[in-house]
């Protein structure tokens, strides 16, 4: 059994704009005060010229409507901003992750994640804002059920090496940019079909015969050989929605645009999940490691742009 290769995912790396902390400080002082209820926020990721496997947040995270930068897709999150460093430390991180993970599963079961697939890209932030010292302690997590591993059936293939890849690209280009986060390509060479379908269109009236010609596509923010973390939730949704796909060979296409908006280096993975997932007892993973690769939070020091004394010194 040692020759079985398992598909591994590139974990998300959080990337926080300083404006995210400026806005948090403003909200804490002017609105939340002593309340530490969670806030829902937005993040974004790009699959154009991706560097690392970033999930970014800035001031706009707190807006009521998401408006993401060009060539980016929205991610859904929550921020749990604690009042004291002690609360931040003492909080049961495993329980919080499980709680967030269950909300994700609910969205998959209810069909919400099918009609709005952006709900698959999830994150949350545990934070403590030391407003006096201008220090922001934070810890990101990207919740994901620990489902059975995927067997990688053949090495990843670049899109440009696929025959007739021009047809794929053409079918994809018909989709509006915001619908390119998760969708399905239906490619049947014999019947000369190559069309892009929304998840709802392809899966709600699931036809096993037709599904043999499906390629499950997603905007892939990873620069690595590995697909981005968000593919895990995508697979979980598909297999939960269509259990007959368990044990079958499935093709996933991670869309990666270059500077010139070409898809040549997009990757295709052919995988199989041998067994079903028992969602009653599933565990969740996804806390981000710190810069030392350890399970721990990070800290952003904002003195230079927040401390009035520092600002005065810099504004000569």
């Amino acid at each position: 059994m040692s020759d079985i290769k398992i598909l591994q995912f590139a974990p998300f790396e959080s990337f926080v704009s300083p404006t995210f902390w400026h806005k948090l400080a403003e909200l804490k002082l002017d609105y939340d005060r002593l309340s530490d209820t969670k806030r829902s926020i937005f993040g974004y990721y790009t699959n154009r010229k991706a560097s690392g496997c970033l999930l970014e947040v800035d001031y706009s995270a707190y807006n009521s409507e998401a408006q993401v930068p060009k060539f980016s897709h929205v991610a859904h999150g929550n921020i749990y901003n604690k009042n004291t460093i002690e609360e931040f430390k003492a909080l049961d991180k495993t329980a919080l992750l499980a709680d967030e993970g269950k909300q994700l599963l609910d969205d998959m079961r209810s069909g919400r994640a099918l009609s709005d697939a952006s709900l698959l890209t999830r994150f949350f932030v545990l934070s403590f804002a030391d407003l006096k010292c201008h220090s922001y302690y934070y810890w990101f997590a990207f919740p994901c059920p620990l489902t059975p591993a995927l067997e990688l059936l053949s090495p990843a293939t670049k899109l440009k090496e696929i025959p007739n890849n021009g047809n794929y690209v053409e079918a994809i280009s018909v989709l509006p940019a915001h619908a390119q986060n998760f969708f399905i390509l239906h490619v049947n060479e014999q019947e000369k079909v190559c069309e892009a379908l929304s998840l709802t269109a392809a899966l709600s009236d699931f036809d096993e015969e037709r599904a043999q010609h499906y390629i499950y596509c997603f905007a892939d923010p990873s620069e690595y050989e590995n697909p981005a973390w968000l593919m895990r939730n995508y697979v979980a949704l598909l297999l939960q929605k269509c259990p007959t796909l368990i044990g079958k060979s499935l093709k996933f296409l991670g869309l990666r645009y270059d500077q010139q908006m070409h898809l040549d280096n997009s990757l295709i993975w052919e995988v199989r999940q041998a067994e079903a997932c028992n969602y009653e007892h599933v565990q969740f993973v996804g806390w981000e490691a710190n810069r030392n690769g350890k399970m721990g939070p990070r800290m952003a020091n904002m003195r230079d742009s927040m401390d009035p004394a520092k600002l005065a010194e810099n504004s000569v």
Partner: peptide, 20 residues
């Protein structure tokens, strides 16, 4: 920051995480 690190959380084995 070292004092914040939590050891128990790594005990959950997740073979599908790539080291990048």
């Amino acid at each position: 920051m070292d004092t914040f690190e939590e050891s128990g959380m790594l005990e959950l084995v997740d073979p599908a995480v790539a080291t990048t």
